[in-house]
C-alpha cells in the first residue's frame, strides 16, 4: 500500500488543525471500510490519514426530547443497537443493518458513508428523509448543511479540503410519524443497491391522511436524491393505494438512473416505483404503531 503517515488526534481542535495543515493531502479515517481499499488500489493518494475515532465529538450518540445527535464516526452496529434510534429513527436503523456484513458494521460509520458520497450509499436516503443536518467544522468555525445538499456528485461533496464532518443532528420524531428504508439487490446481503428508497411520513391523528412526507432515492442519480415534490404532493392526501401509486409514478419521473452491470435504466425505473410504494406503506404502518417485518432478504 502507498506510504502514508498516521495521526490519531484526541481533540476536535487538533483534528481540524491537522486537516487544515495538510490542506487536501490528508484524509479522515473513520471505519476505513471505504478508505483503506481506495488507498490500497491507488484511487486515493493521501499522505496522511487522520484517525477521527478518538475524538469525543465524533462519537456522540445522544437521544432526547430535542432530537438525536449522531457523531460522524459512530459505527453501524451501535446505530441499530440503540433502542431510541430503532424506535424513533427506524429508517436509519434499517440502513445500518444492511451496510455490508457484520464485520463491516463493526467499523463502518454513517459519517463515512455520507462523506464517501457514493450515489448508492445506503444510509444517506434515510438521513435525508429524517431531516438530518450535517455539522461541519473547519479552521473558520462551524457550519451546518442539510444532508440533501451535502453530496454534489459521485464521490463529491460540500466539504472543503480543510473541513471535516463532526456529527449529524436530527429533529425529534413527530407524533404519528414513521420511516423506512429498503433497497433492491440481487443477493440477500452484501451487495450495492440497484435502487434504494427511504421515506418518512407524518399522519393526522386519525391516521388516515398524510400530513407530510419525505422521500429520498438512492442509486438513480449522480447523488442520493431528495424527492421533495413527491413527498410534498402527499400532504393532505388520504392514505390509499391510489395516492401511494401516484407517489410511485412521481418518483419514477424524477429518477435519472444509468445502465450498468447492476441493472438497466428501465429496470431501475421500475424498481424505483415498486420500492417507493412498499417503503411508503411500511412507513405508514410504523406511524400507525404496526410491526413491519424488515428482516433482511424478505
Amino acid at each position: 500500500m502507498r506510504d502514508f503517515e498516521y495521526e490519531a488526534p484526541t481533540t476536535l481542535a487538533a483534528a481540524i488543525e491537522l486537516v487544515a495543515k495538510h490542506n487536501g493531502s490528508a484524509r479522515c479515517l473513520a471505519g476505513g471500510t471505504d478508505l483503506i481499499d481506495q488507498v490500497r488500489v491507488g484511487r486515493l493518494t493521501p499522505d496522511v490519514l487522520i484517525d477521527v475515532k478518538k475524538i469525543a465529538e465524533l462519537n456522540v450518540l445522544e437521544h432526547g426530547a430535542t432530537g438525536l445527535r449522531l457523531g460522524a464516526a459512530v459505527p453501524c452496529y451501535q446505530v441499530y443497537g440503540h433502542c431510541g434510534i430503532v424506535s424513533d429513527y427506524a429508517a436509519l436503523a434499517d440502513s445500518c443493518r444492511i451496510i455490508g456484513g457484520v464485520q463491516i458494521q463493526s467499523r463502518a460509520s454513517v459519517g463515512g458513508n455520507l462523506c464517501n458520497s457514493g450515489p448508492a450509499a445506503d444510509s444517506t436516503p434515510s438521513l435525508i428523509v429524517l431531516g438530518a443536518v450535517a455539522v461541519i467544522a473547519g479552521p473558520k468555525g462551524r457550519r451546518e448543511v442539510a444532508v440533501e445538499d451535502f453530496c454534489t456528485g459521485p464521490g463529491k461533496n460540500v466539504l472543503q479540503p480543510s473541513e471535516l464532518l463532526v456529527e449529524l443532528k436530527f429533529p425529534a420524531r413527530a407524533a404519528n410519524s414513521g420511516s423506512h428504508y429498503r433497497r433492491f439487490i440481487p443477493r440477500n446481503e452484501m451487495d450495492i443497491a440497484v435502487v434504494g428508497v427511504g421515506a418518512s411520513v407524518v399522519l393526522n391523528d386519525a391516521k388516515d391522511k398524510f400530513v407530510s412526507a419525505r422521500i429520498a432515492l438512492g442509486a438513480v442519480a449522480p447523488t442520493p436524491l431528495f424527492a421533495k415534490a413527491v413527498g410534498d404532493a402527499l400532504a393532505g392526501q388520504p392514505i390509499n393505494d391510489e395516492t401511494i401509486a401516484k407517489a410511485a409514478t412521481a418518483a419514477r419521473a424524477i429518477a435519472v438512473p444509468i445502465d450498468d452491470m447492476r441493472g438497466t435504466k428501465e429496470f431501475r425505473l421500475h424498481i424505483t416505483g415498486v420500492l417507493t410504494e412498499r417503503v411508503l406503506k411500511a412507513a405508514v404502518a410504523r406511524a400507525r404503531g404496526e410491526h413491519v417485518d424488515c428482516r433482511i432478504g424478505h
Partner: peptide, 29 residues
C-alpha cells in the same frame, strides 16, 4: 480478497468481529 468482501481475515478487535484487511495495524494500539 484484501477488500472486505470475503471475511477470511476476520479477527475479534475489542470484542467485535472485523475484517483485519480493512484495519490499520496502528489502529490496534
Amino acid at each position: 480478497c484484501s477488500n472486505g468482501n470475503c471475511g477470511a481475515c476476520t479477527v475479534i478487535l475489542n470484542g467485535r468481529p472485523v475484517d483485519s484487511c480493512l484495519v490499520l495495524a496502528v489502529e490496534a494500539e
